[in-house]
Amino acid sequence: MLDLVIETRCHDLGGFEVGRVLPFRKRRMVGPFIFFDRMGPFEFPAPIPGGADVRPHPHIGLSTVTYLFDGQMTHRDSLGVEQVILPGALNWMTAGAGISHSERFDGMRAQGGRIDGIQAWVAVPESNEEDAPAFDHYAADILPAVVDAGLSLRVIAGSAFGVRSPAKVHSPLFYVHAELQAGARMALPDGYAERAVYVALGGIEVEGLSYHSGQMLVFAPGAAPTLRALQASRLMLLGGEALGPRHIWWNFVSSRKERIEQAKADWVAGRIPLPGLDNAEFIPLPDSPVPAPNPMS
Protein backbone atom coordinates (compact mmCIF):
# COMPACT_ATOMS: atom_id res chain seq x y z
CA MET A 1 0.00 0.00 0.00
CA LEU A 2 0.99 3.61 -0.49
CA ASP A 3 2.83 4.99 2.54
CA LEU A 4 3.88 8.53 1.59
CA VAL A 5 3.79 11.02 -1.28
CA ILE A 6 6.78 13.37 -1.55
CA GLU A 7 6.47 16.59 -3.51
CA THR A 8 9.45 18.03 -5.38
CA ARG A 9 11.00 21.10 -3.74
CA CYS A 10 12.96 23.67 -5.72
CA HIS A 11 16.65 23.92 -4.81
CA ASP A 12 19.15 26.43 -6.22
CA LEU A 13 22.60 25.05 -6.96
CA GLY A 14 23.90 28.55 -7.70
CA GLY A 15 23.07 29.18 -11.35
CA PHE A 16 20.91 26.12 -11.99
CA GLU A 17 17.76 25.04 -10.16
CA VAL A 18 16.90 21.41 -9.51
CA GLY A 19 13.87 19.67 -8.04
CA ARG A 20 14.85 17.91 -4.81
CA VAL A 21 12.87 14.87 -3.69
CA LEU A 22 15.20 12.98 -1.31
CA PRO A 23 16.16 13.44 1.44
CA PHE A 24 12.78 14.45 2.87
CA ARG A 25 11.99 15.27 6.51
CA LYS A 26 9.59 12.32 6.79
CA ARG A 27 11.65 9.94 4.66
CA ARG A 28 15.42 10.26 4.52
CA MET A 29 16.05 7.22 2.32
CA VAL A 30 14.35 4.64 0.11
CA GLY A 31 16.47 1.51 0.33
CA PRO A 32 20.04 2.78 -0.19
CA PHE A 33 18.86 5.85 -2.17
CA ILE A 34 19.64 8.84 0.03
CA PHE A 35 19.42 11.67 -2.51
CA PHE A 36 17.27 12.22 -5.59
CA ASP A 37 17.36 15.40 -7.69
CA ARG A 38 15.51 16.18 -10.92
CA MET A 39 17.66 18.27 -13.26
CA GLY A 40 15.21 20.13 -15.49
CA PRO A 41 13.39 19.92 -17.76
CA PHE A 42 14.96 23.24 -18.71
CA GLU A 43 15.67 24.94 -22.03
CA PHE A 44 19.04 26.68 -21.95
CA PRO A 45 19.34 29.65 -24.31
CA ALA A 46 22.63 29.89 -26.18
CA PRO A 47 25.30 30.23 -25.02
CA ILE A 48 25.02 28.39 -21.72
CA PRO A 49 26.83 30.45 -19.08
CA GLY A 50 29.63 28.90 -17.08
CA GLY A 51 27.68 29.73 -13.94
CA ALA A 52 25.24 26.93 -14.78
CA ASP A 53 28.02 24.34 -14.54
CA VAL A 54 28.64 22.37 -11.36
CA ARG A 55 32.23 23.23 -10.41
CA PRO A 56 34.57 20.66 -8.79
CA HIS A 57 33.28 19.50 -5.42
CA PRO A 58 33.98 16.52 -3.11
CA HIS A 59 32.10 13.40 -2.00
CA ILE A 60 32.67 10.59 0.49
CA GLY A 61 30.78 7.43 1.42
CA LEU A 62 28.32 7.19 -1.48
CA SER A 63 27.86 6.53 -5.17
CA THR A 64 26.59 9.30 -7.45
CA VAL A 65 24.26 8.02 -10.17
CA THR A 66 23.69 10.33 -13.14
CA TYR A 67 21.08 9.52 -15.80
CA LEU A 68 19.81 11.87 -18.52
CA PHE A 69 16.60 11.94 -20.57
CA ASP A 70 17.75 14.89 -22.74
CA GLY A 71 20.90 16.94 -23.27
CA GLN A 72 24.44 16.11 -22.31
CA MET A 73 26.97 16.83 -19.58
CA THR A 74 30.72 16.33 -19.24
CA HIS A 75 31.97 14.62 -16.09
CA ARG A 76 35.57 15.10 -14.90
CA ASP A 77 36.95 13.68 -11.68
CA SER A 78 40.07 13.41 -9.54
CA LEU A 79 40.76 9.91 -10.92
CA GLY A 80 41.53 11.58 -14.27
CA VAL A 81 38.27 10.47 -15.92
CA GLU A 82 36.61 12.68 -18.52
CA GLN A 83 33.28 11.28 -19.74
CA VAL A 84 30.46 12.79 -21.79
CA ILE A 85 27.08 11.72 -20.39
CA LEU A 86 24.39 11.14 -23.04
CA PRO A 87 20.69 10.25 -22.66
CA GLY A 88 20.05 6.67 -21.56
CA ALA A 89 23.63 6.07 -20.37
CA LEU A 90 24.61 5.53 -16.75
CA ASN A 91 27.42 7.29 -14.89
CA TRP A 92 28.16 5.53 -11.60
CA MET A 93 30.86 7.19 -9.49
CA THR A 94 31.79 5.64 -6.15
CA ALA A 95 33.30 8.21 -3.81
CA GLY A 96 34.66 5.82 -1.21
CA ALA A 97 37.21 7.57 1.01
CA GLY A 98 37.11 10.72 -1.11
CA ILE A 99 36.76 11.96 -4.68
CA SER A 100 36.02 15.26 -6.40
CA HIS A 101 34.28 15.86 -9.72
CA SER A 102 32.68 18.49 -11.90
CA GLU A 103 29.71 18.41 -14.28
CA ARG A 104 29.73 20.92 -17.10
CA PHE A 105 27.62 21.69 -20.15
CA ASP A 106 30.58 21.84 -22.55
CA GLY A 107 28.90 19.92 -25.37
CA MET A 108 25.79 22.13 -25.30
CA ARG A 109 27.39 25.46 -24.44
CA ALA A 110 27.49 27.08 -27.87
CA GLN A 111 24.03 26.10 -29.08
CA GLY A 112 22.09 25.74 -25.82
CA GLY A 113 19.26 23.22 -25.64
CA ARG A 114 17.17 21.07 -23.36
CA ILE A 115 18.53 19.38 -20.25
CA ASP A 116 16.53 16.84 -18.28
CA GLY A 117 17.62 14.01 -16.04
CA ILE A 118 18.10 12.61 -12.56
CA GLN A 119 21.04 12.60 -10.23
CA ALA A 120 20.68 10.16 -7.35
CA TRP A 121 23.03 9.26 -4.53
CA VAL A 122 23.22 5.68 -3.30
CA ALA A 123 24.64 5.01 0.16
CA VAL A 124 27.01 2.06 0.48
CA PRO A 125 27.35 -0.49 3.30
CA GLU A 126 29.57 0.58 6.19
CA SER A 127 32.19 -1.94 5.06
CA ASN A 128 32.52 -0.08 1.73
CA GLU A 129 32.50 3.51 2.94
CA GLU A 130 36.31 3.75 2.88
CA ASP A 131 36.85 1.88 -0.40
CA ALA A 132 39.11 3.38 -3.04
CA PRO A 133 37.13 5.76 -5.28
CA ALA A 134 36.02 4.41 -8.65
CA PHE A 135 34.15 5.43 -11.78
CA ASP A 136 32.11 3.31 -14.17
CA HIS A 137 30.26 4.34 -17.33
CA TYR A 138 27.61 2.20 -19.04
CA ALA A 139 26.36 3.13 -22.50
CA ALA A 140 22.61 3.01 -23.10
CA ASP A 141 22.82 0.01 -25.41
CA ILE A 142 24.36 -2.27 -22.77
CA LEU A 143 21.69 -1.61 -20.12
CA PRO A 144 19.06 -4.38 -20.37
CA ALA A 145 15.62 -3.52 -21.73
CA VAL A 146 12.24 -5.16 -21.16
CA VAL A 147 9.35 -4.48 -23.56
CA ASP A 148 5.77 -5.47 -22.84
CA ALA A 149 2.30 -4.36 -23.92
CA GLY A 150 2.25 -0.58 -23.77
CA LEU A 151 5.47 -0.17 -21.83
CA SER A 152 9.24 -0.29 -22.17
CA LEU A 153 11.72 -0.57 -19.31
CA ARG A 154 15.46 0.02 -19.00
CA VAL A 155 17.04 -1.56 -15.92
CA ILE A 156 19.66 1.02 -15.03
CA ALA A 157 21.07 -0.70 -11.93
CA GLY A 158 20.38 -3.76 -9.84
CA SER A 159 17.86 -6.49 -10.66
CA ALA A 160 14.24 -6.15 -11.69
CA PHE A 161 11.69 -7.81 -13.97
CA GLY A 162 13.87 -10.87 -14.45
CA VAL A 163 16.99 -9.07 -15.70
CA ARG A 164 20.12 -7.63 -14.09
CA SER A 165 22.02 -4.49 -15.03
CA PRO A 166 25.80 -4.81 -15.50
CA ALA A 167 26.31 -1.81 -13.18
CA LYS A 168 28.46 -2.60 -10.15
CA VAL A 169 26.44 -2.09 -6.96
CA HIS A 170 27.27 -2.66 -3.31
CA SER A 171 23.89 -3.75 -1.94
CA PRO A 172 20.57 -5.17 -3.21
CA LEU A 173 18.69 -2.46 -5.13
CA PHE A 174 16.79 -1.66 -8.29
CA TYR A 175 16.70 1.46 -10.46
CA VAL A 176 14.52 1.41 -13.58
CA HIS A 177 13.46 3.90 -16.27
CA ALA A 178 9.92 3.07 -17.45
CA GLU A 179 7.99 4.54 -20.38
CA LEU A 180 4.25 3.78 -20.37
CA GLN A 181 1.61 4.44 -22.99
CA ALA A 182 -1.78 5.73 -21.85
CA GLY A 183 -3.69 2.92 -20.14
CA ALA A 184 -0.64 0.68 -19.63
CA ARG A 185 -0.33 -1.06 -16.26
CA MET A 186 2.61 -2.32 -14.24
CA ALA A 187 3.67 -3.19 -10.71
CA LEU A 188 6.88 -2.37 -8.90
CA PRO A 189 9.49 -5.15 -8.60
CA ASP A 190 8.91 -7.49 -5.69
CA GLY A 191 11.49 -8.96 -3.36
CA TYR A 192 12.67 -5.61 -1.95
CA ALA A 193 11.83 -4.15 1.45
CA GLU A 194 11.61 -0.52 0.28
CA ARG A 195 10.21 0.72 -3.02
CA ALA A 196 9.18 3.99 -4.64
CA VAL A 197 8.17 5.44 -7.98
CA TYR A 198 8.95 8.96 -9.19
CA VAL A 199 6.64 10.41 -11.85
CA ALA A 200 8.96 12.23 -14.26
CA LEU A 201 6.35 12.89 -16.96
CA GLY A 202 2.60 12.40 -17.31
CA GLY A 203 0.44 10.93 -14.59
CA ILE A 204 -0.54 7.63 -13.00
CA GLU A 205 -3.39 6.15 -11.01
CA VAL A 206 -2.75 4.12 -7.86
CA GLU A 207 -5.51 2.69 -5.66
CA GLY A 208 -8.08 4.91 -7.38
CA LEU A 209 -6.16 8.18 -6.87
CA SER A 210 -4.16 10.09 -9.48
CA TYR A 211 -0.61 11.41 -9.17
CA HIS A 212 1.33 13.75 -11.40
CA SER A 213 4.79 14.72 -12.59
CA GLY A 214 7.16 15.73 -9.79
CA GLN A 215 5.72 13.40 -7.13
CA MET A 216 7.46 10.41 -5.56
CA LEU A 217 5.21 7.66 -4.21
CA VAL A 218 6.77 5.57 -1.43
CA PHE A 219 5.20 2.19 -0.67
CA ALA A 220 5.01 0.23 2.56
CA PRO A 221 6.62 -3.23 2.65
CA GLY A 222 4.58 -6.01 1.11
CA ALA A 223 2.59 -6.14 -2.08
CA ALA A 224 2.57 -2.95 -4.14
CA PRO A 225 -0.60 -2.00 -6.00
CA THR A 226 -0.74 -1.75 -9.77
CA LEU A 227 0.27 1.53 -11.42
CA ARG A 228 -1.86 2.64 -14.38
CA ALA A 229 -0.73 5.37 -16.76
CA LEU A 230 -3.40 8.06 -17.21
CA GLN A 231 -1.49 9.35 -20.24
CA ALA A 232 1.88 8.74 -21.84
CA SER A 233 4.13 8.70 -18.78
CA ARG A 234 7.76 8.38 -17.74
CA LEU A 235 8.52 6.79 -14.37
CA MET A 236 11.66 6.11 -12.36
CA LEU A 237 11.36 3.04 -10.14
CA LEU A 238 13.79 2.74 -7.24
CA GLY A 239 14.37 0.93 -3.99
CA GLY A 240 16.22 -1.86 -2.28
CA GLU A 241 17.29 -3.02 1.14
CA ALA A 242 17.78 -0.51 3.95
CA LEU A 243 21.37 0.06 5.08
CA GLY A 244 20.67 1.80 8.39
CA PRO A 245 20.81 5.51 9.21
CA ARG A 246 23.28 7.80 7.52
CA HIS A 247 24.53 11.30 8.28
CA ILE A 248 24.49 13.72 5.37
CA TRP A 249 26.12 17.16 5.29
CA TRP A 250 26.59 19.00 1.98
CA ASN A 251 28.10 16.38 -0.36
CA PHE A 252 29.28 14.01 2.35
CA VAL A 253 27.50 10.84 3.51
CA SER A 254 28.68 8.57 6.31
CA SER A 255 27.48 6.25 9.05
CA ARG A 256 29.74 8.23 11.43
CA LYS A 257 29.43 11.91 12.35
CA GLU A 258 33.14 12.20 13.01
CA ARG A 259 33.88 11.05 9.44
CA ILE A 260 31.85 13.98 8.12
CA GLU A 261 33.98 16.36 10.19
CA GLN A 262 37.13 14.75 8.81
CA ALA A 263 35.86 15.19 5.24
CA LYS A 264 35.25 18.89 5.87
CA ALA A 265 38.81 19.31 7.10
CA ASP A 266 40.20 17.28 4.19
CA TRP A 267 38.47 19.47 1.59
CA VAL A 268 39.61 22.72 3.21
CA ALA A 269 43.18 21.41 3.48
CA GLY A 270 43.28 20.15 -0.12
CA ARG A 271 43.67 16.51 0.86
CA ILE A 272 40.89 15.58 -1.57
CA PRO A 273 42.48 16.46 -4.93
CA LEU A 274 40.74 18.42 -7.66
CA PRO A 275 40.12 16.85 -11.09
CA GLY A 276 43.34 17.08 -13.04
CA LEU A 277 41.42 18.17 -16.16
CA ASP A 278 39.35 20.77 -14.27
CA ASN A 279 41.35 22.28 -11.43
CA ALA A 280 41.14 26.03 -12.04
CA GLU A 281 38.16 26.52 -9.71
CA PHE A 282 36.14 24.65 -7.12
CA ILE A 283 33.21 24.95 -4.72
CA PRO A 284 34.41 25.92 -1.24
CA LEU A 285 33.00 24.39 1.90
CA PRO A 286 29.63 26.06 2.62
CA ASP A 287 29.93 29.10 4.89
CA SER A 288 33.69 28.91 4.52
CA PRO A 289 35.89 31.41 2.71
CA VAL A 290 37.91 30.32 -0.28
CA PRO A 291 41.37 29.39 1.04
CA ALA A 292 44.21 31.66 0.00
CA PRO A 293 46.49 30.22 -2.70
CA ASN A 294 49.47 28.30 -1.40
CA PRO A 295 52.58 30.18 -2.55
CA MET A 296 54.53 26.90 -2.49
CA SER A 297 52.17 25.08 -4.91
Rank of each mutant, 00 (worst) to 15 (best):
G15W: 03
V206P: 04
L90A: 11
F16Q: 04
P56I: 02
R25S: 13
G208T: 06
F174R: 00
A193G: 12
Q83Y: 06
Q111D: 14
I118G: 04
G40I: 04
W121C: 03
R259S: 12
S297H: 11
L274Y: 03
R114H: 10
A229Y: 03
F252M: 12
G80I: 08
G239E: 03
S297T: 11
D190C: 10
P56W: 01
R114E: 12
P144S: 10
V21H: 00
M29K: 09
M216D: 03
Q119L: 01
V65S: 05
S127G: 09
G270N: 00
L201F: 15
F36R: 02
G183V: 06
A46P: 07
Q72W: 07
P32A: 03
V155N: 03
H247P: 00
G14N: 04
S254L: 03
P286V: 10
I248Q: 12
Y138L: 14
D3M: 13
R246H: 13
L285E: 08
G112S: 08
P284N: 08
A167E: 09
G276M: 12
H11G: 02
D70H: 14
E261F: 09
L22W: 01
D106Q: 12
G203I: 05
L153F: 13
D148E: 15
V18A: 03
G150R: 09
W250F: 02
R114D: 09
S288C: 14
